[in-house]
C-alpha cells in the first residue's frame, strides 16, 4: 500500500527536476530498487502510471533495476547472495550476517525530451 505514496513522491521529484531542466516531457525514469528494499517493484510500476497521469511523466517508461541482496558474514567475512534478512553463512553457518547491498532505493536517472536547435529546411 505504501507503494502508492512512494510512486507519488517519485513523480513529484522527477517532474520537479524535469521542469528545472525545461523539459517538454519525461520519456523515461530509471529506478534502482534493491531486492531487500521492502518495495514491491510490480506494485510500484502499477502505481507509477496512476501517479504520473496528467504530469510531464505521464508517458514515461519506467525501468526498474533490482540488484540482488548481498550479505557479509560477521564471523568469517564471506560475502554471499541473500534473499532475506535471516541469512546463514554458507561457509561457517553463522547467523551474524550484515546486509551490505540490496537495500538501495534510488531514482537513478530521468530521460527528458526538450526542444532542439532550430534547423533551416
Amino acid at each position: 500500500m505504501h507503494e502508492m505514496s512512494i510512486a507519488m513522491s517519485i513523480v513529484e521529484s522527477v517532474v520537479a527536476h524535469a521542469q528545472k531542466e525545461g523539459a517538454l516531457r519525461i520519456s523515461g525514469v530509471e529506478l534502482l530498487v534493491g531486492k531487500l528494499a521492502g518495495i514491491e517493484a510490480e506494485s510500484l510500476k502499477f502505481c507509477f502510471s496512476a501517479a504520473a497521469a496528467g504530469t510531464l511523466a505521464a508517458k514515461a517508461l519506467l525501468v526498474v533495476e533490482e540488484p540482488e541482496g548481498v550479505g557479509e558474514c560477521g564471523e568469517c567475512g564471506m560475502r554471499f547472495q541473500v534473499t532475506f534478512y535471516y541469512a546463514e553463512c554458507p561457509k561457517c553457518r553463522s547467523l551474524r550476517i550484515t546486509i551490505v547491498s540490496g537495500e538501495e532505493f534510488l531514482i537513478q536517472s530521468i530521460t527528458i525530451e526538450e526542444e532542439g536547435e532550430q534547423e533551416n529546411v
Binding site: F105, Q108, I112, E115, G116, Q118, E119
Partner: peptide, 16 residues
Amino acid sequence: HHHESITRKIVLEQDV
C-alpha cells in the same frame, strides 16, 4: 521549420 525534440538523460542517483 523543424524544432527537433531531442532527448537527454539526467543522472540523479537520488534516494527515493
